[in-house]
Amino acid sequence: MPDVRQSTSDTDLELLRSGIRLMALRVLGDADAAEEVAQEALSRAVTAVRGPAATLNFGAYVAGIARHVIADWFRSRGRVASMTTTAYEAVRDDRPDALATLCADEQAVRVRAALAGLGDADRELLTLCYLHDLTPTEVARRLEAPPERIRQRKLRALQRLRAAFDAAHPLRHARAVPPTDMAGIAATKARGSAA
């Protein structure tokens, strides 16, 4: 397992921030609150790794901090009686559609256009999966079709939508540049680790 301090210096902080924001937005349903949580969780994580070295999965470490910050967020607003895992669990599925706000407008438009280009049967299939939350096996049972055929149809339909999605915003493999404050913190910490 990687050392946390080493991991932080190697980790794209902007990627972490983006991941935490996804987590938070899904639960909170509010972009500003999600950004606030992401900032706070990252700050706590960076502060924590300045202390004694710990060996654990850094992603899990930061995600755990984020979950606590989200629970804190709810507690501070009096939405739950106490800060517990239960409190976080209680609201975790309430606002899944908030994540859609993280998609660029162009991505949304292209996916919608690609969806309109699918046949009725494929749209029906995706609707059952994505809006009625059914598994392909459950869909197969409902549509009285072999599960494998349903999976293949779904895969082909999603490939067309994914092509439209990626065309709007190609996957960037390069590391994102972290914001100035985070870059400074990371550089300071890296120097400390080297020393």
Partner: peptide, 9 residues
């Protein structure tokens, strides 16, 4: 992407 599909549907 999954969120975009859901929103489009």
């Amino acid at each position: 992407f999954a969120s975009a599909v859901r929103a489009a549907l």
